[in-house]
Amino acid sequence: MSLRGTREVRENYQIFRLTGLLDAFSEPAFRKVIGDCIDNGPKNLILVLAQIDFIDSSGLGALVQLVKKAQNAGGSLQIVTNPRVTQTVKLVRLEKFLSLQPTVEIALEKLKKK
């Protein structure tokens, strides 16, 4: 698979650290796994995409769907990025909607303010 990762579950949030490619090939499994994790809780998620080498339109679409799913479940989704992912997200003007954060620590601070 072109996308791999780890999951860490805490009391009121989950952190996913992903590496590889978030593209049309990996997107269906990514969306299903993360969606199931939202359903099972906790509802607040942090996706660490700092080690993602490439994201395409299907990957961006999955992120948008997962943000909406988390919000509809009463949670939130923060995304920690790298310059490549940030640039791709900014090209389609989704940086505010996708709640991009520079570090996990800042993403955690945003969760605490909820």
Rank of each mutant, 00 (worst) to 15 (best):
R17T: 15
S76L: 00
K113C: 04
G20R: 06
Q101C: 14
P102L: 11
G74P: 09
A73S: 15
V80R: 04
G41C: 01
K32R: 15
P28A: 14
A62E: 05
E27I: 01
G35L: 12
R7K: 14
S58W: 07
V104Q: 10
G74S: 11
K68V: 09
Q87W: 10
L47P: 03
D53F: 04
L77E: 03
V85T: 05
F30W: 06
T88E: 08
L100A: 09
A70Y: 00
F30I: 09
Q14E: 12
R4P: 00
Q14Y: 03
L22E: 04
T19L: 09
F30S: 02
L22Q: 05
V64F: 05
G74V: 11
V89L: 07
N82E: 06
Q78W: 06
K96P: 01
C37S: 13
G5R: 02
I79V: 15
N12M: 09
V33T: 15
L49M: 14
N44M: 01
K112H: 08
L91A: 05
F25M: 09
I106K: 15
I52M: 10
V85W: 03
P28Q: 14
M1L: 08
I15L: 14
L3N: 10
S26M: 09
N12T: 12
L49F: 14
F54N: 09
T6G: 13
V92D: 04
C37Q: 12
F54C: 07
R93E: 14
L45P: 02
L60V: 14
R17Y: 08
A50V: 00
